[in-house]
Design a protein around this nucleic acid. Structure first.
Lengths: 204, 204
DNA sequence: TTTTTATTGTGAAATATATAACTATTTTTG
DNA sequence: CAAAAATAGTTATATATTTCACAATAAAAA
């Protein structure tokens, strides 16, 4: 199994390749792709090599080959269903994001505790938390985006886990306590912004 | 200077400490804080040690001491101004996020090329791209959140750089070409979601 | 007061990640 | 056809990061 860091690169190769393909490229060199996504050529080759993806000596890699290999690795041959929990600003923004489709993902539903949200017009159906189990089962969902306020995060995560969710993209700034079989990926935009400030020399 | 990885942890300690303080804690052990933010106790101690932050042998660390040290490191004694460029779903959501205030940051303005956006009621004033330079200067902004569509990202980044921005939080799924003195921090929610799927065993 | 205990602080070891250097192979050129 | 050049594939090296192990020390207990 790939490392978490490596997976990130592979997914970025995929995005870069899609762009390059749109520009008419049919084959690509490790150096070219590396430059496109910000990775050294050696690392590009190593990553592909690690997954048994072959190029042609002196001929580079075929874009379509690469894309279909990556598609297979990441299960992009079928559409992956996702739910968004918490229909605040961020949850709403995500539910409207068109990028999911391009990545063969589908946001099947949103959830919120606030009954006022349920009537509102969103791009996706929004349910109360009571329907969680039902929707998860109906759409065979195993991954959720958690976009609720900090205070509600742990309790909501518990509910997700109890209904069989095994992956949580956690946008709340807390460490979630979950069973071992549940994977949590934390993304904290405030932290990302703050460390950008620190390293860009803005501070002091 | 700290590494990029270390900075992330330090910022998370800060958030964890704020939570623990709210819960009434006055002193904290490396193990406790580590558990709160998901880091080993040794690493917590090493991180603090690297910044000259001292605890008491057998007595742990004083929460207020830690917080004020971290505040100093990250320039949290004054408010840091930020702009959001691109008032689409994500840009709008960010501009409304209350977390900025808690982190001593202030979103002073939003920008968009779409004139229709300029009239709309947002939580922050929204300007056309022509006002970029003016606002950046007026509010002494050096960091921007880039939330424009993929195709516009590079060109918009160029404009930011030309107006003196030195840090970009890039939410668009492209590698930006920027001068060396400009730091870019890429956050790609689709990639984060996809690798969650991969590693949580959803695929195959 | 002496001993025990808990915790910090840190040097050494282990692990993970990335780069550099080299080999093998294919294509192109003379 | 032989030589040169370009690029994948791979091994070795370097760097970065984390964990381990333990010494130092302060507090608590005996």
């Amino acid at each position: 199994m790939a490392s978490f860091t490596q997976t990130k690169r592979l997914l970025r190769y995929r995005m870069g390749l899609i762009r390059l393909k749109k520009m008419g490229l049919e084959k690509v060199f490790s150096y070219t792709l590396g430059k496109e996504v910000g990775v050294s050529a050696e690392l590009v080759r190593k990553d592909f090599s690690a997954f048994g993806i072959k190029g042609h000596r002196r001929g580079g890699y075929e874009v379509d080959d690469l894309l279909s290999s990556l598609e297979k690795i990441f299960g992009k041959d079928r559409i992956q269903n996702v739910i968004v929990v918490g229909m605040g600003n961020m949850g709403r923004a995500l539910s409207m994001y068109k990028g999911f489709r391009e990545h063969n993902m589908n946001v099947v539903a949103g959830f919120d505790i606030d009954p006022a949200k349920l009537n509102k017009k969103f791009h996706i159906p929004v349910y109360s938390m009571e329907s969680l189990g039902e929707v998860i089962e109906a759409f065979n969902v195993s991954v959720a985006v958690l976009a609720v306020p900090e205070v509600a995060a742990q309790e909501t995560a518990n509910q997700l886990v109890s209904h069989g969710i095994s992956g949580i993209l956690n946008l709340a700034p807390v460490l979630l306590k979950t069973p071992d079989h549940v994977l949590v990926n934390n993304v904290n935009l405030m932290v990302e912004l703050e460390r950008l400030m620190y390293h860009s020399g803005v501070i002091q």
